[in-house]
Every structure is written in structure tokens, then in C-alpha cells.
Nucleic acid binder design. Structure first.
Lengths: 200, 200
DNA sequence: GCGGGCATGTAAACGGTTACATGATTCA
DNA sequence: TGAATCATGTAACCGTTTACATGCCCGC
């Protein structure tokens, strides 16, 4: 149900087409909840049949078609219910840490490659989130600004604060992953040296 | 392929039945890569047809049956290949942080409930990992000890070090999540007070 | 005799990935 | 005229979740 909630969260900002939503998912929001277009379009159709959203169909040129979706009362309620209800935690399935537990079975070169790739992966994620935080602080986030335009003055600070809070959590996680992999590189070097000393 | 790798990693420790593997998955290993029994039994069957493992069939009493699996040469190679190959990172899909970004739409009570639940969730995960680290350090981990028994002296330190390293990474993540949610509680209190002051 | 742990699965549904597929509009 | 971007999907497959299903062995 989280894909649905993510879509509703975006549509609450303002009516959007599947294509526009997909663009958002490939950017900032997609780094919290990823979804490819092949999942977005069918889900929007499903939500429309359940009347959580309604499509305003626009013709484009002679044959083109564009469906702009609006959140209905029922959709708004579904989102609020999701926000106030309990959250299901999916069980951990962490390939990197699984592999880390058995690194003694990998070649030394593969250990370095693995840890360095882990660092690059999380550094690029960190970059996205730090940029997003900076954009929010500078009040230059298009989506957030659209939302703020329809938000009561008193609620603006709260809206901004929670958005920053969310991204800061993801950034903290990324930093934790990077530090961990860096400790891993040091550990690996130390173990290699030890091995060389004991069996020369 | 990670479920498969996790199963191979455990079976490399020593031959085990589906039931024993399932027990391991519901304990320490399962907190890195969760898998229910309904996934384990069919996967073992599949791996057996692909000859990565072989089943030693034992009858139990009159009708009972027990299949103890051994890793074959091909299975060992498949594991080593997985260890040395690149790792696929699954795209982020984090319901907690998604919700956090829109907390202004939740009731104040739900915000507290959500953050407190996040804290309990990660505290219990942290507990598991810290216990596991302590068990490893005290050389009291049954699975690790079985592995060490068939490991050359020179490789023991490495085996222990990487296992601890893996669990430390997970513990660090848990701590990061707990701290984040605690900052969230403080933020939420501050915002509530601000709101009360501006519109009394 | 009964409860708990041992032992094995099947089946349906759901969510996500990957590949395939098409065509229109807009601007250089 | 051709490339980029807008715009919309389908289909097959795979992995995961949830629920269902059965029955033996051992110790109390």
C-alpha cells in the first residue's frame, strides 16, 4: 500500500498525469520509494476504479491522450488513514551485510571492490538527499513550493520541518553505511597484513 | 539469488535439514536475510535439481522423512562466484521515511505513536545484533563454532572479524534509526508548542 | 493422552523487475 | 528530418507473503 500512499501524497500537491508522477518518482521522491513507470500506470488505473482518484482526460493533438489525476474525498481519507495507522516494517533483507558476514570466502580484490562499491553507492544516495535538503532550505523545491502555496501560513513551518527531517534520516543512514564500509576497508587491510606476517 | 546464497552460506558450515535451516533463519541470520519456511523448502528442492546441493534422505520412524542437504562442488563454486561478483542494490523503498516526509498530515498522537514504534522496532533489532556480537566475541555462537572447527587456524581470526564487522554495521544502522526518531520526537514537541503559541 | 517441537510442504495472491511496445509533439 | 521528450501502457517472470495443510516423535 505504500506505492499507493506515495502516489496520493504527490497528487495531494496538485493534479498530475502519470508521466509527471513518474518524473517525480525518478527524482527526489523515488529515492525514498522507488517505482518504475510500468508500476505507476496500472496502479493509477486501479486507484481510479476504486475512486481514490479521478482522471480528467485531455486529448493531445489528433490522437494523443493525457490523463490528469485528481485526489477524491475518498482518496484524501485513504491517505489520512494510512498516515495515522500503524506502519508495517518489512523484514530485513540486506545483501551487503549478508555478504560482509562471509567476506573471508572472497578474494582480497573482491573485498575491496565490494566495499568501494558500497561506498560509492551510498555516497551517490547521500548526494541526492543532501541536495534535496539544501533545495528545501533555500525554498527552491518545486513540489514543496506548490504544496506550500495551498498551505495555511501556520502549517508551513511544520511542512518544511518534517520534509527536512525525513531526508536527514536517510542522509544519516547513508553516512552510517559509508563509515561502516570505510572501517571494513581498514579491517581488510589489517587482516591481509596479519596473514602475510603469519605465513610468509 | 541472495536467498540461495544465504542457504549455501549456512550449508557450508555443515549439512543441515530444511528444518534446521529454517531455525537459523528465524534467529541471527534471519535478521540479515529473512526467509519463511514456505520459501526455504521449495528453494532447497530447486537447488537440489540444479545440483548445487544433494539431499541425504533419512527415514524417521515408520513414515517420517528428513532430508539433510550437503553442498556440492557446483554449489561451493556458485557461492564463491556470488561472493566475488558484483552486488545488486535494490532501490530504496522505505515506508517510515516516506511517512516522515508528510507527518504534518497526521494527528499529533499518531506522530508520537509512529516515532515511538520506530524506536521500539529498531531497539529490538539492535538488541539482536548486540547479543550476536557478544556471543561471537565470547566464542559461544554454535554456528560460528561449527564453522571454526573446520577452518584452518590462520583463517579463524578473519572469519570471526568479518562476522563481527557485518553485525556491527547492522547495529550502527539501528542506532542511527533510533537517534533519528528521537530527534523527530523532539522536533514534534517543539512544533506543537510553536503552533499552540501562534494560535492560542 | 497430550502438548511441544520436529519435519515437510502446497497454493493463491501480491508486489516488483525487466523487457517489450507504440506513437505523438516539439524544437532545432 | 531527426532527436528529445511527452505519453501510455502490456506481458512474462520472479520473489515474497500469507494462509493452509499434515503428521510423527518424544517426554511428561
Amino acid at each position: 500500500m505504500s506505492l499507493r500512499s506515495a502516489l496520493l501524497a504527490l497528487l495531494r500537491i496538485g493534479p498530475m498525469s502519470g508521466y509527471e508522477l513518474q518524473k517525480q518518482f525518478s527524482q527526489s521522491v523515488g529515492h525514498v520509494w522507488h517505482a518504475p513507470d510500468s508500476q505507476i500506470y496500472p496502479e493509477l488505473r486501479k486507484m481510479a476504479t476504486e475512486e481514490l482518484i479521478v482522471a480528467e482526460e485531455q486529448t493531445r493533438g489528433s490522437a494523443g491522450m493525457r490523463r490528469v489525476y485528481h485526489v477524491t474525498e475518498a482518496g484524501e481519507q485513504a491517505f489520512i488513514d494510512w498516515m495515522n495507522g500503524p506502519l508495517k516494517y518489512q523484514r530485513t533483507r540486506d545483501a551487503a551485510h549478508l555478504r560482509a558476514a562471509y567476506l573471508e570466502s572472497a578474494d582480497q580484490a573482491s573485498v575491496y571492490a565490494f566495499l568501494n562499491e558500497h561506498i560509492s553507492h551510498w555516497e551517490s544516495e547521500l548526494q541526492v538527499w543532501e541536495d534535496e535538503i539544501a533545495t528545501i532550505e533555500a525554498l527552491e523545491s518545486p513540489m514543496l513550493n506548490r504544496r506550500l502555496a495551498v498551505t495555511a501560513d501556520a502549517d508551513r513551518e511544520v511542512t518544511i520541518a518534517y520534509k527536512k527531517f525525513a531526508y536527514e534520516g536517510l542522509a544519516a543512514r547513508a553516512r552510517s553505511e559509508i563509515e561502516w564500509a570505510q572501517r571494513g576497508l581498514q579491517l581488510s587491510k589489517r587482516l591481509e597484513r596479519t596473514a602475510a606476517e603469519t605465513s610468509p
